[in-house]
Each structure stands twice: as C-alpha cells, then as structure tokens.
Computed example of a mutant assay.
Amino acid sequence: MPYILISTQIRLEVGPTMVGDEHSDPNLMSFLGAMKRNMLGNHFWEYYVNDAPRVVLNKLESCGYRVVSMTGVGQTLVWCLHKE
C-alpha cells in the first residue's frame, strides 16, 4: 500500500499517534511498534503508537514515505504520506 494516514489530537501532540486501520500492512505496523485497539463505541480497529507524530514521520521517511499533505480537522491533525 503506497499511502498511509497518521493523525493525533491537538491536545495530544506528544502522542499517541494513530498510524493505521485494521487493513494496514502488518509489517509496517510492526516496524512502527504499533498496537491494535478498538475504542469503545467504534465498530473498527485502529493501530496506534505512543510516539509523537514527529517520531512516526521520521520512521516513515526512513522507509521511503514522503508527506503529501497535512491538515487540521477540528481538533485533529492529519498527515497523508505516499511511498513511490
């Protein structure tokens, strides 16, 4: 999968960082040290790490990912990355 989204809440800029969903590449999630969880009330699973987004972005860059866009959505920061 060449695209990945990561996000964090503005009040949690030092982590945790959401790094994937239940369909994400398990090898990449393992590399990031991500844990899979299901938040109460959600019907889906997500991967997260306790690292700050900056740390996650550095790890993804070392794997060949580049930031395509970044935005704020309400109280959430979202980065879209692509790997060629």
Score class of each variant (00 low, 15 high):
residue 22 E to N: 00
residue 16 P to W: 00
residue 41 G to W: 01
residue 37 R to Q: 08
residue 63 C to H: 13
residue 12 L to P: 00
residue 20 G to F: 09
residue 26 P to M: 09
residue 36 K to L: 12
residue 48 Y to L: 09
residue 76 T to E: 12
residue 25 D to L: 05
residue 37 R to I: 15
residue 75 Q to F: 07
residue 17 T to Y: 00
residue 12 L to K: 13
residue 2 P to D: 15
residue 37 R to G: 07
residue 33 G to V: 05
residue 63 C to Y: 14
residue 45 W to Q: 10
residue 78 V to H: 04
residue 40 L to D: 02
residue 63 C to L: 15
residue 56 V to E: 01
residue 39 M to N: 06
residue 43 H to F: 02
residue 27 N to H: 05
residue 25 D to F: 04
residue 58 N to E: 14
residue 18 M to A: 11
residue 58 N to F: 06
residue 68 V to F: 15
residue 72 G to N: 07
residue 82 H to K: 13
residue 37 R to P: 00
residue 36 K to G: 01
residue 73 V to S: 12
residue 81 L to D: 12
residue 83 K to L: 14
residue 55 V to S: 11
residue 4 I to E: 09
residue 82 H to P: 02
residue 71 T to W: 08
residue 4 I to G: 09
residue 13 E to T: 12
residue 74 G to T: 13
residue 69 S to A: 07
residue 22 E to C: 00
residue 19 V to Q: 03
residue 28 L to C: 03
residue 43 H to C: 01
residue 26 P to Y: 07
residue 75 Q to T: 15
residue 23 H to M: 01
residue 72 G to F: 02
residue 46 E to Y: 06
residue 55 V to Q: 09
residue 50 N to V: 11
residue 39 M to T: 13
residue 76 T to M: 11
residue 84 E to P: 13
residue 54 R to L: 01
residue 71 T to I: 07
residue 36 K to E: 04
residue 15 G to P: 06
residue 84 E to T: 05
residue 60 L to E: 03
residue 21 D to L: 02
residue 49 V to W: 00
residue 35 M to P: 00
residue 23 H to A: 02
residue 83 K to F: 10
residue 79 W to I: 04
residue 39 M to L: 13
residue 64 G to L: 11
residue 83 K to Y: 11
residue 47 Y to G: 06
residue 35 M to I: 14
residue 75 Q to R: 12
residue 66 R to L: 14
residue 36 K to A: 01
residue 81 L to Y: 10
residue 11 R to M: 10
residue 45 W to N: 09
residue 17 T to E: 01
residue 31 F to H: 08
residue 18 M to L: 05
residue 20 G to W: 02
residue 61 E to R: 14
residue 17 T to I: 10
residue 47 Y to C: 08
residue 65 Y to C: 04
residue 54 R to G: 05
residue 81 L to R: 05
residue 62 S to V: 13
residue 35 M to F: 03
residue 53 P to K: 08
residue 29 M to W: 04
residue 49 V to Y: 00
residue 46 E to Q: 04
residue 53 P to A: 12
residue 80 C to A: 14
residue 75 Q to E: 15
residue 3 Y to M: 06
residue 44 F to E: 11
residue 63 C to A: 11
residue 41 G to H: 03
residue 16 P to M: 05
residue 50 N to D: 07
residue 68 V to M: 15
residue 38 N to R: 11
residue 19 V to L: 01
residue 40 L to V: 10
residue 39 M to A: 10
residue 25 D to E: 11
residue 21 D to C: 12
residue 53 P to R: 12
residue 4 I to F: 10
residue 16 P to F: 02
residue 41 G to K: 00
residue 46 E to C: 02
residue 21 D to F: 04
residue 35 M to H: 05
residue 15 G to L: 02
residue 78 V to R: 08
residue 38 N to P: 00
residue 26 P to F: 07
residue 41 G to A: 03
residue 57 L to D: 03
residue 61 E to G: 13
residue 51 D to H: 05
residue 13 E to L: 06
residue 38 N to E: 08
residue 57 L to I: 13
residue 7 S to E: 10
residue 9 Q to F: 14
residue 71 T to K: 13
residue 2 P to C: 09
residue 44 F to P: 02
residue 48 Y to P: 01
residue 61 E to C: 06
residue 6 I to D: 05
residue 36 K to W: 01
residue 65 Y to W: 10
residue 41 G to E: 02
residue 31 F to V: 07
residue 61 E to V: 09
residue 24 S to G: 11
residue 49 V to F: 00
residue 43 H to A: 07
residue 78 V to P: 08
residue 65 Y to N: 07
residue 57 L to Y: 06
residue 79 W to T: 05
